[in-house]
Design a protein around this nucleic acid. Structure first.
Length: 264
DNA sequence: GCGACAG
DNA sequence: ATCTTGTCGC
């Protein structure tokens, strides 16, 4: 799979200011409404289904592992509970991690792995934020727009924005909106409605797992990457959840990245 | 100036 | 993200 929008491919050699300018363009090109090729209700981890394969989406999980200055980017594609393809790439890293600019460090390596992928996923889960980002252009948004594929971001901690309610000690399945507050810029520069933008729901905190008598687990922070709404994003992550905290596609990609790293 | 900050 | 054994609990 190759970039549909080459002009948005993250370039690690850009200046910080140029990176932020590109992020504004990516955010302007992003769609935070549902524009899917499938019915979210047909998303499940069941290995067999009465629903014909054509209507069961190919869902990909993407994750990375690191060794010194190299990134191992891994992609695992599922149809229901079955793995239908895996791909990976080892890429040299050129810049350090900077909060808010993650896609410029890891985006290129991820696209290298996508170049190795034969199929075209109907949905991709990324490890990081999408719309929950200072300029509404987190890793999932940047990659989703560049590949023009429905994308969601799944992060283990909150980059910015504000949970509507406290996220402490919540039961499995619980969710609460993440509002833009003052940490997220509006996309429309001409808008004079920045006050109400603060109430915009840019994602959700979602308690995917909780063990009975064990230490409290932190929620996941999910957000739209591209071509999916915040509400559908949580629904999809819920439907793709298995026995662990991370949704199955992400968890499998995580394990596959580690495997590739060991034998490298 | 202070605090916050995906992976 | 990564360096890492045992250990507590379902």
């Amino acid at each position: 799979m190759r970039p549909a929008r080459p002009e948005f491919v993250p370039d690690a050699s850009l200046s910080r200011e140029e990176m932020e300018t590109l992020q504004h363009e990516v955010a302007a090109a992003a769609t935070f409404d549902d524009d899917l090729s499938f019915d979210p209700a047909n998303v499940s981890l069941a290995s067999s289904s009465l629903v014909p394969d054509e209507r069961r989406p190919l869902v990909a999980g993407v994750d990375q592992a690191f060794l010194d200055d190299h990134a191992v980017s891994a992609i695992v594609v599922l149809r229901g509970g079955e793995v239908v393809e895996r791909a990976h790439a080892v890429t040299e890293l050129s810049i350090p991690y900077v909060p808010g600019l993650l896609s410029f460090r890891e985006g290129g390596p991820i696209l290298d792995a996508f170049a190795e992928l034969e199929c075209d996923p109907d949905l991709v889960l990324f490890d990081g934020s999408g719309r929950i980002h200072f300029r509404q252009a987190g890793l999932a948004t940047h990659m989703g727009v560049t590949l023009d594929v429905p994308a969601v971001g799944v992060a283990k901690s909150l980059l910015c924005g504000r949970p509507r309610e406290s996220v402490d000690e919540r039961p499995e399945g619980w969710r609460t909106p993440i509002e833009a507050a003052d940490g997220v810029e509006p996309r429309d520069v001409d808008a004079d409605d920045t006050e109400e933008f603060a109430d915009t729901v840019v994602g959700y905190a979602y308690q995917s797992r909780q063990y009975p008598n064990s230490k409290q687990i932190n929620p996941l922070y999910v957000s739209p990457g591209h071509r999916v709404s915040a509400e559908t994003t949580v629904d999809l992550v819920e439907r793709l959840g298995g026995e662990y905290k991370l949704p199955e596609p992400t968890r499998l990609a995580d394990a596959y990245a580690d495997d590739c790293k060991r034998e490298y």
